[in-house]
Amino acid sequence: MTKNEPEAIVGGKITNLSLRRWLHSLPGVDKVGLESRAAGLGTRSIKTTSKTWALDAAIKMMDLTTLEGMDTPERVRSLCLKALTPDPTDPDCPRPAAICVYGDMVSVAKQILGKSGIYVAAVATAFPSGRASVAVKLQDTKDAVKAGADEIDMVIDRGAFLSGNYLEVYKQIQAVKNACTRADGSKAHLKVILETGELQTYDNIRRASYLAMLAGGDFIKTSTGKVTVNATIPINLLMLQAVRDWYDQTGVLIGVKPAGGIRTAKDAIKYLVVVKEVAGERWLSPDLFRFGASSLLNDVLMQRQKLKTGNYSGPDYVTVD
């Protein structure tokens, strides 16, 4: 048994009891302290060269997202083209890391993005509620992988988590991870959505983060974007602490993806400040940090144009997606 096997980390056979003991032995989170630290980082002043860097980085770390019931192939196609050429006036404008769509749209997206280097991520496992049988969730995942998804964004079973059935949550993540295996044996990248807005407490969010990392998630992601409270800076900070401490303990690098509610370049820069100061510069990479966002890209593009030309351009000068 190597030190990174779940049994070694938890300190015994994986049972609901051992998971409970392990998760509940993590240090508590003081709400006031966490939020005041997050607010403190929010006052960092980012301008000139650091702002230029941050805006480009925000685009490179973006999962450009459309997750609507009204999504159509044309809509997805349009979004993919936007990802390929975010700013037609500036050939140097970087591209987003990925496009994030529902599973049935993967083949449409894949057709356009092909080998462009922009990944296709699919939400799966009965997104957003996750309220379906395990068999359905796994099939959902397999379908997306088979259609060519590079990344899978799964949701955890919040009901199981809140009722204390950590083992069920753990097993489902492991099963989805297995379902990410392609015919050639390689694996789609797995992001585990905790839906922090439903877990409610910071202690729960820390525990769910650890549970997802233990079960083999490559990324931990805050939200589906479909509930009242989505990503916040304190939650982002807390999850970055979790991946940092996890790396210290295991040597395994896990990514973080805040999603939902990040709409402005200013917000995105605040998130990047937290990444830099809490997890460290190593995490300032699309491999380890992503934004899940739909309207953020255009605001970042407008800010980029402002930095280049000195003038605010306005929404008429960025393309609708």
């Binding site: 240090p27 508590g28 989170v29 003081d30 006031v32 302290g33 966490l34 005041s36 630290r37 602490q241």
Partner: peptide, 11 residues
């Protein structure tokens, strides 16, 4: 030893 460690560090 039962302190909220990350916040204690800030404190």
């Amino acid at each position: 030893d039962d302190a909220p460690l990350d916040q204690a560090v800030e404190g």
